[in-house]
C-alpha cells in the first residue's frame, strides 16, 4: 500500500466499519486522528494492522474526563511502511470501568493495559497480566484518577514542620536568606551588570557566592 492508496483506504473506512470517523488527517505531518465507538475498536485494529500495515503500537494513553464520566483511550499506531501515525480514540464509561484487551493483536498492549489498570483502575478483560507493577505498596484508589487529590493526601498523611535552622537564622540576621522577586534575580539583565551588583541589592554584595554567580552570568552573556 502506498500513500495515495492509504489516503483512499482511510477515506473509505467509515463505509466498511460503521461509526468510524476520520476527524483529522494530515499526511504531510504524518498524523491522523480517528474517533470510533468502543465496540468497533477491535474490528478497526484488525483492518488497520492487516490491510494497512500498522504493526507498531506506539502507546495506549488513557485520559480521565471526569465530568463526562468517561475514560478516553487513545491507541497510537505507526506504520513502518507508510510512515504514518493513526491515533484511534474511543471512550468507555468510568463506571464500572472495564474494556477488552488487545493483547492478542498487539503485544506491547500488555504493558500499557497493566499500567492503565494500575493508575486508573480500568480493567482489561483478556489481558495476560493485570498484576500491580509500580504501586505494589499502594492500597488507595488508583492515583491518576482525577478525583484523587495528591495534595489532600499529603495533608492527611504527613505533617508540616517548622524549618528554621540555626544557619538560616544567621543568614537572615546578616540580611540574606530572603526571597528575591523574580524581576530582581541574577539572570535579569538589568540587575546583574558586568560591573557587579546594583547598589539596591547590597545585601548580596557581602557574600562571595553572589559575586561568583554574577561573574559566571556575565561570562555567559557574552560581550553585551
Amino acid at each position: 500500500m502506498n500513500l495515495s492508496q492509504f489516503e483512499a483506504w482511510l477515506a473509505d473506512i467509515d463505509h466498511r466499519i460503521a461509526g468510524v470517523e476520520v476527524t483529522a488527517s494530515n499526511l504531510n505531518k504524518r498524523r491522523n486522528r480517528v474517533d470510533l465507538p468502543a465496540d468497533k475498536l477491535v474490528l478497526f485494529l484488525e483492518a488497520v494492522k492487516g490491510e494497512a500495515s500498522f504493526v507498531h503500537l506506539s502507546a495506549i494513553s488513557c485520559v480521565d474526563w471526569i465530568d463526562d464520566g468517561e475514560f478516553e483511550l487513545v491507541y497510537h499506531l505507526w506504520s513502518y511502511e507508510l510512515n504514518q501515525l493513526i491515533s484511534a480514540h474511543i471512550r468507555v464509561s468510568r463506571d464500572p470501568g472495564e474494556y477488552q484487551s488487545i493483547y492478542d493483536l498487539y503485544r506491547p498492549a500488555g504493558f500499557f493495559e497493566r499500567d492503565i489498570h494500575e493508575m486508573y483502575g480500568l480493567y482489561f478483560h483478556g489481558a495476560p497480566d493485570m498484576e500491580k507493577f509500580i504501586l505494589t505498596e499502594w492500597n488507595g484508589i488508583p492515583p491518576m484518577r482525577k478525583e484523587f487529590d495528591s495534595e489532600e493526601f499529603v495533608e492527611q498523611n504527613f505533617s508540616w514542620q517548622e524549618y528554621n535552622p540555626e544557619w538560616l537564622k544567621e543568614l537572615v540576621a546578616e540580611g540574606g536568606g530572603v526571597v528575591i522577586p523574580c524581576e530582581e534575580q541574577r539572570f535579569s539583565r538589568s540587575v546583574a551588570t558586568d560591573h557587579g551588583i546594583d547598589q539596591q541589592h547590597s545585601n548580596w554584595s557581602g557574600c562571595d557566592v553572589s559575586s561568583k554567580l554574577c561573574r559566571i552570568d556575565s561570562k555567559y552573556r557574552g560581550g553585551d
Partner: peptide, 17 residues
C-alpha cells in the same frame, strides 16, 4: 519477572497540577 516502581515519582500526576 520484571519488578519496577523503585523510581516512581508520579511525574504524570505532578504535571497535571
Amino acid at each position: 519477572r520484571a519488578d519496577g516502581g523503585y523510581l516512581h515519582r508520579g511525574f504524570e500526576k505532578l504535571m497535571e497540577q
